[in-house]
Design a protein around this nucleic acid. Structure first.
Lengths: 325, 325
DNA sequence: GTGAAATGTGTAAACGTTTACACACGGATT
DNA sequence: AATCCGTGTGTAAACGTTTACACATTTCAC
């Protein structure tokens, strides 16, 4: 079919072993042989077959990227960074979108194993957290969410601290009835809720409640409507992701609530509109690109040296205060 | 290392050929053999090695997805649909982000070939359009952008018609000085520009000019600023993508231009904020999920039957009129 | 009862690499 | 002159599949 190392060997007048050695750049090769092989490769336009290499090596130059929601800008930013790092190291990226479905996650993890990927980047669904058995899995790096018991490389942001900082801007602003809208089921959401709640120490009466739903726009809109209905006195809202925030903000705009006009709306991530709505929205920006890069770097190192000590990288979110009069 | 078909054969007390046949479900197999093999597979937890399969078949169950910008919500939506279809058919998705860089595109296409992917989904950079040689490449389906001369399966939206429709809402609104902000270098941008311009037939004096730049937020912001400076009389703007529109809209908001207040702002895609800014923004929504699905479906069919006639699917954008008093 | 067809199974080759091992040569060290 | 080592190259095995081919048994038609 396509060109193989045999064709190159024939053309260069040597054995396939020599060709392979030249290509790999190891072992003893005479200048003459090297030159002939290189010439033959160029003339024929030979490109090695990665599948054969993978079979032989029992490991491919592919990494798996398991995302919970690729439509979430936070994750697409991460994907971009991951792919860039991988490409730079000669790896390709096998991408999967689980939509937070633990079953899909498991299926995909199995697929990855069948593909003999060199490593996996995963933002784990909470439900699967305990099933991650590092002894059977290829090198694995967790990002965005960590798994409590597991001894695995992880890159996260300090969600608790970030939520605390964010919520405090609201408390400083003298709001009296504050509600929180958070994602459901995830480690991340739990940490943010914790930070959110701890901000109210000594001011518990200003905390209206924590509302949770899967992190989609429609859910944010729904929860916001629910809050407005149940708690007419609400005067401020914290949203734990761009998607939830976008939905919630839409509801607020449509209901002409005073929350928005009075700046009682803040959120995680930095949705594109946060800077130009009136008044602009204060946010915690997550270092998505940095997270993707760090996770991919970590994975490369782990692949290179599976015995290296496990590390946990904690990135800080950046508070962006907007619209202070 | 890991389990192979040999282990299963040993356990089931038959040859590896029989195991393979049971797994593939073809050829003659006795009920007894089938049962024994299935049992052995289950007991051992055997999973076939996709790499070995790929090598033997000279083709993997992987498809390549080449994106020009994964951060663009339009493309992440497409990615999601593609991955879902692929998964359903037992394929995995190798993802690459080119950032519109033709060099990266070429490099990646080569990588894909080395990985022996079964097929490729591509939104081609204009610069590479001519180099797509279907005779050497695996099955290929183009999406979002088509290539003029090439005889390739394609899924696009009717950009010219969409731009025409969109621009007409502006003309009907009696705006007199209309500028257009479009992406650079792409087939898509050209088609949209064509539609945009043709809307002005008989009203050429109302067309202020066409501005082009790579489709990023900052570029949209920059172009908008440039337009405001050069053409103080501008009273309406058409933006050809969500990213450009977001940047442009930000600039407008910050400059307190009257364009926004008077609804003279419309765009392609349906950015999340379009529905809740005041006044809301009329848009053409691109059927991103449908496009991804159609393209992936088409690729599956093409892989199955490489001889089937080439088809071009044209999807229609949906005009969403908002904020009509 | 014979031959042909249908059914069932195993052996071995092939896919394109990498690499252990063997071997050959030349020069340096005994 | 024998030995050893460094250099260079080739042969062949291995990775885990699929499948062509061979062979054996059963079924069936005449």
């Amino acid at each position: 079919m396509s060109l193989s190392i045999k064709d190159v060997a024939l053309r260069a007048g040597c054995s396939i072993a020599t060709v392979s050695r030249v290509l790999a750049g190891k072992g003893y090769i005479s200048d003459e042989a090297r030159q002939k092989v290189e010439e033959a490769v160029k003339e024929l336009g030979y490109r090695p077959n990665r599948v054969a290499r993978s079979l032989r090596a029992q490991k491919s130059r592919v990494i798996g990227l398991v995302l919970s929601d690729i439509r979430n800008p936070f994750f697409s930013e991460i994907s971009r960074a991951v792919e860039a790092v991988a490409f730079r190291h000669g790896y390709t990226v096998l991408m999967c979108n689980t939509d937070e479905d633990p079953k899909r996650e498991v299926q995909f993890l199995k697929l990855m194993e069948e593909e003999k990927v060199a490593g996996i980047l995963l933002s784990p669904t909470r439900a699967n957290a305990k099933t991650l058995d590092p002894s059977v899995l290829p090198p694995l790096v967790l990002f965005d969410r960590k798994v409590a018991g597991a001894n695995l490389d992880t890159v996260v942001i300090d969600n608790e601290e970030a939520a605390l900082k964010l919520t405090r801007t609201l408390l400083a602003g003298n709001y009296q009835k504050i509600a929180g809208i958070f994602g459901a089921k995830s480690f991340t959401a739990s940490a943010r809720i914790k930070g959110f709640q701890s901000a109210f120490e000594g001011a518990e009466n200003r905390l209206l409640g924590v509302y949770q739903a899967p992190a989609f726009e429609e859910e944010g809109a729904r929860l916001m409507a629910e809050i407005l209905k149940k708690e007419p006195g609400v005067d401020a809202v914290v949203c734990s992701s761009a998607l939830l925030a976008t939905g919630a903000y839409r509801t607020l705009r449509q209901s002409a609530s005073r929350i928005v006009a009075e700046r009682g709306f803040i959120c995680f991530d930095d949705p594109s509109w946060a800077s130009f709505v009136d008044p602009p929205v204060t946010v915690i920006r997550q270092p998505a690109a940095a997270m993707g890069e760090a996770a991919a770097d970590l994975l490369m190192k782990r692949i290179e040296d599976p015995a290296r000590p496990v590390s946990e990288i904690v990135l800080q979110g950046e508070l962006i205060v907007r619209g202070v009069r």
